[in-house]
Structures are given as C-alpha cells and as structure tokens.
Design a protein around this nucleic acid. Structure first.
Lengths: 152, 152
DNA sequence: GGTGTAAGTTCATTTTCTGAACTAACCGTC
DNA sequence: GACGGTTAGTTCAGAAAATGAACTTACACC
C-alpha cells in the first residue's frame, strides 16, 4: 500500500496519517502555528527541498488544513495560512512536543509555554471531558474494542 | 535534508519526527497500543510492505519505543512490545484521533472511549498542569518565542 | 542594465518503496 | 517422510519519490 492510499483505511489514525503522516508536513504545520506564512519561510526552516515544500503545501490546501491567499498582485505572491482545521492541530503538536521533551534523550531548549489565564509555566495534561480528571492508558476502555485487539 | 538527518534539528517536534515522522510507524504504534505484538499482525493490519514493517520496527527498537523479545526458542520467534517511552505516546494518538474524528470529512466508526473512573464516554481535553483549565491557542504564550516567529 | 526577492518548476541522479518470491526453522499429519 | 502450515524475516527487479541545483516569471529598486 502507498501513502496516497492510506485514506481508504476506515480508522481515524489512518485518516489523519493520510493528511499529516509525513515529517515535512508536520514541520510545516509547526512553523505555521508559530506564524510562518511564506513559501520561503517554510523552505528555510524545514530545509526540505523546494519541490517537497511545494507538494506538501498543496496537499495541505487540498485537505483544508491551510489556505493559499494572494497577498500581492504584481508580482503575484501567495501565502499560506492555517484554516480552523489546521489550527485544531495545535493540541496535537503540543502533546507531541511534550512527549519529545520528556521521553527523548536529546535535549532541546526549554519550551517556556505559559498559560495566560493563570500565568504559570505549564505542561499539557490530557483529561476527560466529562469529569475533568487526567486520562491514562489504564483508565480508558473501549465500548467496542478496535478490530484485532489482543491480550498480552 | 533527508528524514535520517531530521534529528540534527534542535526542536522537540523535529526530534519527535525523527522517531515517528512516518505514516507506517504511527500505524504500527496504533496497533501496538491496541495490543498487537507480532510482525505478521503489524504487516496485515498496516498493509505496508514487509520490508518497511521490518525497517520501521527496527527503527522503533533503536529509539527505545519498542523492545524485541524472543517468545519462543525453537524455532526462534520474536515479538515487539512498547516500552514506557512507547506507551507514553498514547495521549498523542488519542488527541490525534480526536482531531481526525472532529475535523476530517470521512466518517469513521465511533471510537467508544470510556473513562473507567467516572464511567462516561469522553473526548480528550488538553488542560494546564497548573490550574487545570483547558488550554487553547489563544491562552498560550511563550517566554522566549521560538526562533523566527512572525505576526500575521 | 544589474541585482534582489518571492514563489515556484524542471531535471538528472540518488534513494526509497513495492510486491512477490524466497529462506530458515520448526510443527503436525496423512 | 513428503507435504503443508506458521512466523519472522530477507532479497530483488522495477516503480515511485526525493534531492540539490539550476532555471523561470514577474516585478522593484538603483
């Protein structure tokens, strides 16, 4: 199976991978969440080849994650902005970044995330929408277990 | 730049991508979180080529996300289990799955996640470790803004 | 007329992936 | 004891995708 066919798998993770299942795509979204909008910015920051940046941006536009807008008529120039669908990826990147910071060996400089309402530096905690308590692997179960779930 | 060189970028997202920045890798981790341990299981479920499954599993072992264990001596047979580092990816997959379910057009069957302590079907909410309130794009700022942050 | 900027496209070479077949090391059975 | 089945891979030719560098278009500034 090819990457372009992953969207035929009826699983939310597979669907997500058909859109953002690529390292360069994720770096582009990271940059976009930080405010980058220009082709050259994405290319310099990710250091992916220009062809890949162009192809990935087009793919993201196709999937409604970014939109391409002309910001100058002569010469014609375009920029890329996250749509609401794209901005909704922010929690994904934040949780992913936290995994990287706490689990991977290579140190990166401290993120310095601050929650403005309370004013504190914080880490993201995934909680239950119903009771507000943190959710862990051990406190989740599935009404209908996903196909082919096995027991150790 | 190649995928194998992404780990030279000193950014937590880039570091994460050097480990899990690939669609097949994420599908393997999805399966592992559901309890899969065998090569054949991963290959059947992801439908990636056998060579890719073998290469991705080896990469995950290299990065300490999974461990390879002999479960039968004759004939020698191995299985793959998530390490604590790998299990720590569960919140990432859960938040990603929620993005997919709420933002992507193609419907997938309902996930049926239930939080056992409170007993409710739930959705994951990312909150502040300090005050417990939900975190949104608008309520975060950065002490030292990431390099090359721009304003719209 | 020359230099610079921005958003790409083109292209030859290199790298990676696919799909199918093959291997190794057994077990069960007819 | 030959035949088929299982599991965890490896091998390989052909196809697809990525790389890096150069090139293109369309201006603006000096």
């Amino acid at each position: 199976m090819r990457w372009s066919e992953i969207d035929t798998i009826p699983c939310p993770i597979a669907q997500a991978m058909s859109v953002i299942g690529d390292a360069w795509t994720m770096l582009i979204i990271r940059d976009a969440l930080r405010g980058s909008t220009r082709f050259e910015e994405f290319q310099r920051s990710t250091r992916a080849s220009r062809a890949v940046v162009a192809e990935r941006l087009a793919r993201l536009v196709d999937h409604g994650v970014m939109q391409r807008e002309q910001y100058e008529a002569r010469p014609p120039r375009y920029e890329y902005r996250l749509t609401p669908r794209g901005r909704a990826l922010q929690p994904v990147l934040m949780v992913l970044s936290h995994w990287s910071e706490t689990q991977l060996p290579k140190p990166t400089r401290p993120t310095g995330r601050r929650h403005t309402p309370c004013g504190h530096a914080f880490t993201p905690v995934v909680t239950c929408s119903e009771c507000g308590e943190p959710v862990t692997l051990e406190t989740i179960n599935y009404d209908r277990p996903p196909a082919s779930a096995a027991k150790p």
